[in-house]
């Protein structure tokens, strides 16, 4: 029994030593995050001509004077930033560093959107963590895996390795003056509260909309989900660009067809991304294809569809993103 206790004690001791080492590296990592977040903050401030100062860093990260000073010292010592008249500016080196973190962030969001199946509400938060972890090599690998994507899922540009940041053309939905056909090009994911609002309205980049009414408080748009009145406070966080293409009307979602009914695929929602989208395309679920509901699971989900002479089972959350035009007496 004594030996037993001794071993237990030893095990606990090793555990503590291990935990201590882990805490230390954790602390170093937190330090790195703070410095890099400050870098990003100075980067955007410089770009938008807003002064970046000790106070603004303090406010941005909600930290003490002392911590903010320490971060600034680190930045200046490692020649990433310079101080001019109490304002902070990034050096070339610093700009590159900041840009790499932004690239990490956007690539990771794209990765999450395309391959992970993680709920879109969590993308930003996950990417905020991951942007500090990815090494340059990993970033390049990721880029290669994703096929060198141009945009992140919110519509922001992902600059290539050599490239500087660039803006995607578009104007804020709250600022447009004429009604007509538009396409959503960007959805801002901060602040989180408003972003959640946008998600609830099911508005996403690349989505076609038709602006039908503008007044002081809101913008009225027609979308594939119906007509929505968007408060200006939310509309400021959505960017749109004018397009020629028609907004298709009178469509049904595939999951709303009943067993035995059939329809012609008109489009796949832009929210279907990455692997999921490509798989559906490969199976022949493309605009113009005929699709028929054959069977349903006891619970009604998944359901089996006949498409190009094959039986394919799809879950309803996928089927609801496939728009069809119902065929009569199909």
């Amino acid at each position: 029994m004594n030996i037993f206790l001794l071993i237990l004690l030893l095990a606990l001791l090793t555990g503590f030593v291990f935990l201590f080492g882990k805490l230390k590296s954790e602390r170093e990592f937190r330090e790195k995050i703070r410095v890099e977040d400050a870098l990003k903050h100075i980067y955007t401030s410089n770009k938008e001509n807003i002064p970046a100062t000790l106070n603004s860093i303090k406010g941005h990260q909600k930290i003490s004077d002392q911590s903010a000073l320490k971060i600034i010292k680190t930045l200046i010592d490692s020649k990433l930033a310079e101080r001019k008249k109490n304002q902070l500016f990034l050096t070339e080196e610093g700009k590159k560093y900041a840009l790499n973190i932004i690239k990490n962030h956007r690539l990771w969001e794209r990765y999450l959107a395309e391959e992970s199946g993680l709920d879109e509400e969590h993308w930003h938060k996950e990417a905020e963590k991951m942007e500090h972890k990815l090494t340059e090599k990993e970033r390049r690998e990721l880029r290669k895996k994703l096929g060198n994507p141009l945009r992140d899922p919110h519509g922001d540009a992902i600059p290539s390795e050599e490239e500087d940041d660039f803006e995607i053309a578009g104007e804020q939905l709250s600022e447009i003056e004429t009604t007509g056909k538009y396409k959503v090009v960007h959805v801002e994911d901060e602040p989180h509260e408003i972003y959640k609002e946008i998600l609830k309205l099911q508005i996403y980049p690349q989505m076609p909309v038709e602006v039908t009414g503008i007044n002081e408080n809101s913008v009225t748009i027609k979308t594939e989900h119906g007509t929505l009145a968007i408060p200006k406070s939310v509309a400021t966080n959505i960017s749109v660009a004018k397009v020629e293409t028609e907004l298709l009307e009178g469509l049904q979602k595939l999951d709303s067809l009943k067993v035995g009914e059939s329809g012609i695929v008109v489009k796949l929602s832009e929210r279907l991304r990455g692997v999921a989208r490509r798989r559906l395309l490969d199976l022949g679920i493309i605009p113009g294809s005929k699709i028929k509901v054959m069977y349903e699971n006891v619970s009604g989900n998944p359901r089996a569809y006949e498409i190009k002479n094959t039986l394919i089972a799809l879950r309803n959350d996928i089927a609801e993103q496939i728009f069809v035009r119902k065929e009569e007496n199909g």
Binding site: S116, A313, I318
Partner: peptide, 14 residues
Amino acid sequence: LKGIPSTFSLELPP
């Protein structure tokens, strides 16, 4: 392993 399956498609072969 947070997330929901994103790529569920199942072929029911003849």
